[in-house]
């Protein structure tokens, strides 16, 4: 392991700044929760959570100061989260379309 890896780059000041940012973003989440942004409610909460997660991964988990290979694996984690979210939403966001299709089907004959 090289001395570069052992040092990990970040200073106490950086950690404090990141810590402060995380607290501020938590405050923002709370503020957002008390206001109605219509259909943006969930996306806003997800974006804030995403930014916070990224800060933790980059600084507290030292990914920023690591090799490209580690970046690739960390990015893969995010990419897979996007796959999970994307395809799950492909169901939830198209449920209405499915209902419209079902309505076209004649009613089941009842006795």
């Amino acid at each position: 392991m090289s001395s570069h890896d052992e040092h990990h780059g970040a200073s106490l000041r950086t950690y404090l700044v990141i810590f402060g940012s995380l607290l501020a973003l938590t405050g923002l989440t709370v503020w957002v929760a008390f206001h109605d942004f219509g259909s943006f409610n969930t996306p806003l909460a997800l974006v804030i959570a995403g930014v916070k997660g990224t800060l933790v991964v980059l600084y507290f988990m030292h990914v920023r100061y690591n090799s490209r290979l580690v970046w690739v694996f960390a990015a893969a984690g995010f990419l897979w989260l996007m796959i999970l979210f994307g395809f799950t939403f492909s169901d939830y966001l198209t449920r209405d379309a499915a209902e419209a299709t079902v309505q076209d089907v004649p009613a089941w004959p009842t006795r």
């Binding site: 796959i83 395809f87 492909s90 169901d91 198209t94 379309a97």
Partner: peptide, 18 residues
Amino acid sequence: GFFVWGHHMFVSGQSVYA
């Protein structure tokens, strides 16, 4: 393999599009 999981849910109320 990560892009196919919805085939377990064809009749679970998943949307037709999905």
